[in-house]
Amino acid sequence: MSTAEIVGTWLAAFFTLAILSFLYKDNPLYKFAEHVFVGVSAGYQLVRQTFDVAWPNLLQPLWGGLHRDVDTLKAHPQWAFYSIPLAFGLLMFARLWKPIAHLSRWPMSYIVGAFAGTSIIGAASADLVIQVQSSMVNLRGTGPWTLIDNPFSLALSTFGLVCALIYFFFSKEHKGALGVVARIGVYFMMVSFGGSFGFTVMGRLSLAVGRAQSLLVRTPLNPHAPWPALVGVVVVTALIVIWERKISPPSAGEG
């Protein structure tokens, strides 16, 4: 392991504990780590977008085409067409100069239109049609009671689905029979939200477990564990104590 990597493992432990210090209270160490995070993630995204997308999917074909590069001409015979998305993309920067700022709406409209159009087809074909189709009761299901391919389970689930959809039907007041059905629909949704809550707890805990593993368990990437974490706890605690004393010094009577 190189010196840079050893320094890196200590830095990683420090940053982890600096973020966790927020659990005590908002403090300068947390703010420092938070701002490093924003800067690094924005920078990382820009680099990735540049070298993984903008270069191979836009700039390289144009550059290679202009320089009559044989490989580029073979891969992108119509390389000149890339000047259209380039021009559109550059129009986005028009918003930096007020007289032509409105031109930045053009590329935005292109992207919004593309996503609006594709989302209509995606939602209609995958979510609406197939989900309704799958809710049709199949009496030939052979699965155990715990799974959906059991006739009773599917019938109960479909009943719950209809009730929940009726709850979302607001054109008529939820009174009488409609009110009862809508209420059953709410119960089904509450059980569903309960399931989501259970899964969410599990997910968030897993992330905390992952961080604890990386701090405390010795791996090739962290061969000195748990020492960086233990030293980090001492350093972070000391820094927070110093900061607290600075913002509210102990009075003369205190020890």
């Binding site: 990735r48 977008q49 997308v53």
Partner: peptide, 11 residues
């Protein structure tokens, strides 16, 4: 590698 574009990349 990585490609930006969400569902547009899939399509």
């Amino acid at each position: 590698g990585f490609k930006e574009g969400k569902q547009i990349v899939m399509l």
